[in-house]
Design a protein around this nucleic acid. Structure first.
Length: 524
RNA sequence: GGCCCCGUCGUCUAGUCUGGCCUAGGACACCGGACUUUCGAUCCGGUAACAGGGGUUCAAAUCCCCUCGGGGUCACCA
């Protein structure tokens, strides 16, 4: 049994697409499941698109999610280099072989000529196929033109009148008629190889056994099969996994549509989270930081197990009921047979569900650690917090419970980190809960009783309030809400008594006094 | 338009290969109820799907045919 070798071959674009991450994950899973190797190869053949520093965000996404690669950038490996731009010599040798054996030919047709041919065929209602005029050239003529430096590309000579067939691990048997295929360009006129060619040469050289990629590549497959054939190499097993579509859409999730996604109900929650977090930590939505990109989730404080869980369920399932899947389980159980054929829509809601679950699985210290990072980024706490600050945050995180889905959520509790005099009030909540003579009177009365609470704990505070409402003959809600708005400025939050305990007596009293004053002013 | 792929609740999916256990299961979302100190928290419950039409069969989500719908791709991009 030969070693399973899979690869993910991104082009350095400066960001990692969430759908691409899912493809990478599937490749990684298949390699790990089989105890094989996962290779990262950088497809940077298009020099005109080269951008400096565009690789790091991609590697960073892998590192963040904990997907390691056995061969590739930074780690090297026996089949390097792993940058296509550094493998020119390998492609050159391969193309020489194809040229020598007559499997490929130099094509001197001009782009204009080809365009005219295409137009003609389209008009005639038949599929375009190459005219192959250059095939009629004598060897001497070709040699001379090459010597003159006449621009030309190298094309694969597609054998006509045949079918190319594959047995796709996901799609099953798929076949194409070669008679309708134009001869694909293998090498550009500047001598650089094209994707289809470089990919095949590299996959063969790197002994890739399984090519798992998005279904949009299915139509590239016959061309690649023919190149394998011409090279005299048997092709790998193909597995074309379903496209990841945008929520509520059947179209491919794309960065080009980010603007549209803003109005997408399913995406709204994500944008709202970003609006709450990014400005506070000095970030903003951009080309490379939006819900289509992996970095978006990292910057919002998502935890990797949740993201991984969500991604693995996009087009794959373990059985008829298991949703919560630790990576180890997926590695153990992953199989090609259980990959779904139909497209899968990315579901932010479900992602959040997974996040909520996996966040809770983290030990308290780790949750606190993550929150501290965000508090530091926001500038609300120093990067090296004191034990006292750490303890303070620990108590908040504990009180938040499942309200903490992602680390960025800690930033919606800014009222715990603001000076008492700076506390801002949610106007709606303030009006509803504090702007009445009854509320003011009740709150003032309750404030006076706060002094007697000793110790100032949630337990004692609750006992006090229960005594208080009984004596006053009012319902809990009549005092709970005014107190909450007075001390946090908001109408909602976690347990009120925990809130009071965490804030401490002094701050609670100061905040109530301030709220009282403000409420009285607004009434008069 | 050509080629190729896909089509089970709004969404992710189980079931399809090996027809019957499917009066189609689970999850997310949604709706309702409970709790009651709020809530985007928690608990409980509910609505909701085999794209359509023909066959084959005692029996079809499952097999066959047609139709319709959706998507991908048609570069000297990857």
């Amino acid at each position: 049994m030969t070693e399973v070798r899979t690869r993910f071959a991104p082009s350095p674009t400066g960001y990692m697409h969430i759908g691409g991450m899912r493809t990478a994950l599937f490749n990684w899973l298949w390699a790990r499941h089989n105890g094989g190797k996962f290779i990262l190869r950088i497809d940077d053949t298009d020099r005109s698109r080269h951008v400096e520093g565009a690789l790091q965000p991609i590697l960073e996404a892998f590192r963040w999610l904990g997907l390691d690669w056995d061969e590739g950038p930074e780690v090297g490996g026996p089949h390097g280099p792993y940058f296509q731009s550094q493998r020119q010599e390998i492609y050159r040798q391969a193309i020489e072989r194809l040229l020598a054996s007559g499997k490929a030919y130099r094509c001197f047709e001009t782009p204009e000529q080809i365009q005219a041919d295409r137009a003609e065929d389209e008009k005639a209602g038949r599929p375009y196929v190459s005219r192959r005029r250059s095939l009629d050239l004598s060897a001497e003529q070709v040699q001379q033109w090459v010597a003159e430096g006449r621009p030309h590309v190298i094309r694969l000579l597609v054998p006509r009148g045949r079918t190319v067939e594959i047995d796709d691990a996901v799609r099953g048997h798929v076949s194409w008629d070669t008679s309708m295929m134009p001869d694909p360009v293998l090498v550009r006129s500047d001598g650089s190889p094209l994707y289809n060619f470089a990919t095949v040469v590299d996959d063969a050289a790197m002994r890739i056994t399984h090519v798992m990629r998005a279904e949009e590549h299915l139509s590239n497959t016959p061309v690649q099969c023919l190149i394998y054939e011409a090279l005299g190499v048997s092709p790998p097993r193909f597995a074309h996994i379903p496209i990841v579509t945008a929520p509520g859409s059947s179209r491919k999730l794309s960065k080009r549509d980010v603007a549209k996604y803003r109005n997408n109900p399913a995406f709204r929650k994500l944008f709202q989270m970003a609006e709450a977090v990014f400005p506070v930590v000095g970030l903003e939505l951009s080309e490379s930081l939006n819900p289509v990109m992996v970095a978006f989730y990292q910057e919002l404080g998502f935890v990797p197990p949740g993201v991984l869980n969500a991604l693995c369920r996009l087009g794959w399932s373990l059985d008829d009921r298991t949703e919560i899947l630790p990576l180890e389980t997926v590695v153990e159980k992953f199989s090609l047979e259980r990959i779904v054929k139909s497209p899968a829509a990315f579901d932010p809601d479900k992602l959040l569900m997974f996040e909520t679950h996996w966040m809770q699985q983290l030990p308290l210290e780790e949750r606190v650690e993550g929150c501290l990072r965000f508090l530091a980024k926001a500038g609300w706490l120093p990067h090296s917090p004191t034990p006292r600050q750490r303890d303070y945050v620990t108590r908040i995180v504990q009180a938040m419970g499942e309200r903490l889905r992602v680390f960025g959520d800690i930033l919606s509790y800014g009222d715990f980190f603001v000076e008492d005099e700076r506390l801002e009030y949610d106007e709606k909540a303030f009006r509803k809960r504090l702007q009445s003579a009854e509320s003011i009177e009740l709150l003032a009365a309750f404030r006076e009783r706060l002094g007697e609470v000793e110790p100032f704990t949630a337990e004692e505070l609750e006992a006090l309030m229960r005594r208080f409402v009984e004596q006053q003959g009012v319902k809990m809600g009549q005092i709970v809400h005014p107190v909450r708005v007075a001390v946090t400025g908001k109408g909602v939050g976690f347990g009120l008594f925990e809130t009071l305990e965490i804030l401490g007596k002094d701050r609670v009293l100061r905040r109530i006094d301030r709220a009282l004053q403000r409420a009285r002013q607004s009434l008069s």
